Computed example of a mutant assay.
Amino acid sequence: MWIVGALLVVAAVAGFFWMRHTKSELHAMIGTETLSIPELERLRGISDELGAKGGFRKTAEVVGAAHARPEGLLTSELSKTECVWYRFQVERQYETVEYRDGKRYRTKRTEQVASHTSWEGYAVVDQEGRTLGVDPNGTKPDAVEQTVNRFEPYRGNGGSVEVFGFKLPQFVLGSGSTTIGYQYKEWVIRPGRRLYILGEVHDKIGPLVISKPENGGHYLVSTRTEQELRDDRVQRHKFLSIGVIAGTLIGIVLVVADIVT
Rank of each mutant, 00 (worst) to 15 (best):
I3S: 11
I210V: 13
G165S: 02
I46R: 12
S79E: 08
H21I: 11
V4H: 05
L26R: 13
Y105N: 00
T110D: 08
T178L: 09
D48F: 06
V163L: 15
K185E: 14
G129F: 00
L7H: 08
T147C: 03
Y154V: 06
P153Q: 02
K23Y: 09
K80A: 12
R194F: 07
M29C: 07
L240H: 02
E82N: 05
F88V: 03
V10Y: 12
G181W: 06
F171E: 14
H202Q: 11
G64F: 02
L26F: 14
T223L: 09
L78D: 04
G243S: 09
Y94G: 05
L208T: 03
T147R: 01
V90H: 00
I46G: 03
K140P: 00
G45M: 06
P136W: 00
G247E: 02
G216L: 03
E71T: 11
V134A: 05
Y99A: 02
T179Q: 04
H237S: 15
K108Q: 12
D48N: 09
H202S: 15
Y94C: 06
Q170E: 15
G51M: 00
I46S: 11
R20P: 00
G121E: 13
A257P: 08
E82I: 00
H27Q: 15
K238Y: 07
G243N: 05
R109S: 12
G176K: 06
A246Y: 10
A12M: 11
A66V: 10
A66E: 10
L40N: 00
W2E: 14
G199C: 09
E162V: 14
F56W: 06
E25K: 15
G133Q: 04
A123K: 02
G129P: 01
V161I: 13
T110G: 01
R194V: 12
V13T: 11
G158C: 04
M29E: 06
L8C: 12
R155Q: 07
R44G: 09
N149L: 12
G174V: 07
A11N: 13
G55D: 13
V244G: 01
V255H: 02
R42A: 15
E120A: 11
S79Y: 00
A65F: 09
P38V: 02
F239K: 08
T22V: 09
K204L: 07
Y99E: 14
R42E: 15
E25N: 15
V172W: 04
V161T: 12
H202R: 13
E98L: 03
F17M: 11
K23G: 14
R130H: 01
S241L: 14
Y86L: 01
D231Y: 07
R155T: 08
K23H: 07
L43V: 07
Y122S: 03
A6P: 08
R190L: 10
G15H: 08
R92K: 08
Q112K: 13
V134D: 06
L220P: 06
L229Q: 10
L8H: 05
D135G: 01
K108I: 12
P141C: 02
G159F: 05
I245T: 13
E145I: 09
W187I: 01
R44E: 14
N215L: 14
R42N: 12
R20S: 06
R92Q: 13
R233W: 13
V163Q: 07
R42F: 12
H116K: 11
Y122H: 10
L173N: 05
P213A: 09
I242R: 02
E61C: 09
H67S: 09
I189Q: 03
V209A: 10
E91W: 08
T75A: 05
S36P: 04
G174D: 09
I242A: 12
P70L: 04
D203T: 14
